[in-house]
Computed example of a mutant assay.
Amino acid sequence: MSVIVKEIYIYPVKSLAGISLKSAKAEEMGFENDRRWMLINADNVHVTQREYPIMSQFYPEISGDKISITFQDQKHEFFISEHLQNTIESNVWEDKSDVFEVNKNTSKWFSEKLGFDCKLVKILGKGDRKHESSKTKETYNVSLADAYPYLLIGTESLDFLNEKLEKKVSILRFRPNIVVSTQNAHEEDDFDTFTIGEVSFKNIKPCGRCIMVNNDPQKGIVKKEPLKTLSKYRNVNNSVLFGTNIVSLNNGTINVGDEVVF
């Protein structure tokens, strides 16, 4: 049985909702416009759904050269290319990240909606954040994702989990970039180098999951599942694994329906 790309997602603003795509342009830092923006607080520390589950209720759309964000019944938009000139030194976990505020009005909009002072910032180019892999000891140019540019999940991994849950969860809990059809649960952990469409990818390591997967993306409410159940059978060295982190070896386009060639 061939392995086929079933779904593609990007998450333009770190920790906000994602966008489902039929095709995407792969770059070293991740898909085009994937996690190139994030929110930082008054101390220039990035904020996520871990502290603010309501962030899942902000829905981005890309149209032409603009991004719009919808929260409840209100919409705000800004240009993909816009940013102020002053560099802000922030971090994504242990990685220093040089970012730029998008504009004062956009920061004000998010501050009002979230109820605390924050700024929407953008990473401009490769090299503005580097991540050293604990597995390979190599350094990668990455976006504002937690660690690696791409997350891949096999369909059977989710089906296997849902068989164990009283209430099924959707793949959106796990914020994948690429979902592929698989025959066995977690077989994606063992992928090595493979090609999708125009792009070669390399598997780095399975992804350790955090409390964020317990946030229902439709409601912004955190419960105990699915992490509780996952931890019973996917706990390796105190890390609960689901999906795998990959990097692209070249630029190019991939599409839903493409075959994964090993």
Rank of each mutant, 00 (worst) to 15 (best):
V3P: 06
V3C: 13
V3R: 15
V3G: 03
I4M: 09
K6W: 10
K6T: 14
K6R: 13
K6L: 14
K6V: 12
I8Q: 07
I8M: 05
Y9W: 15
I10S: 05
I10F: 06
I10C: 07
I10D: 02
Y11E: 01
Y11S: 02
P12A: 10
P12E: 10
V13W: 08
V13M: 07
V13G: 04
V13L: 05
V13A: 04
K14A: 02
S15G: 01
S15E: 01
L16W: 10
A17M: 00
A17T: 00
A17G: 04
G18S: 10
G18R: 09
I19N: 08
I19M: 11
I19R: 06
I19D: 09
S20C: 11
S20A: 14
S20T: 12
S20M: 08
L21S: 04
L21E: 10
K22Y: 14
K22I: 12
K22D: 15
S23F: 13
A24N: 00
A24M: 01
K25F: 06
K25W: 00
K25Y: 07
K25P: 00
E27M: 08
E27S: 02
E27I: 02
E27A: 00
E28Q: 10
E28H: 06
E28S: 11
M29A: 10
G30Y: 11
G30A: 10
F31H: 02
F31M: 01
F31K: 03
E32F: 02
E32W: 03
N33F: 14
N33R: 12
N33I: 11
N33G: 05
N33K: 13
N33T: 07
N33A: 10
D34L: 12
R35V: 07
R35D: 06
R35N: 06
W37V: 04
W37E: 02
M38V: 03
M38W: 06
M38S: 02
M38A: 06
L39W: 04
L39Y: 03
L39H: 02
L39M: 06
I40D: 06
I40L: 09
N41I: 10
N41F: 13
N41Q: 12
N41Y: 14
N41R: 12
A42Y: 13
A42E: 15
D43H: 06
D43P: 00
N44F: 15
N44I: 09
V45H: 07
V45Y: 01
H46K: 00
H46G: 08
H46N: 09
H46I: 11
V47C: 03
V47D: 04
T48N: 09
Q49S: 13
Q49T: 15
Q49A: 14
Q49N: 09
R50N: 13
R50M: 12
R50C: 12
E51T: 09
E51V: 01
E51K: 14
E51R: 10
E51G: 13
Y52I: 15
Y52A: 06
Y52V: 13
Y52G: 04
Y52F: 14
P53H: 08
P53V: 07
P53I: 04
P53C: 08
I54G: 01
I54Y: 00
I54V: 13
M55N: 08
M55L: 15
S56L: 11
S56G: 14
Q57F: 13
Y59H: 15
Y59L: 14
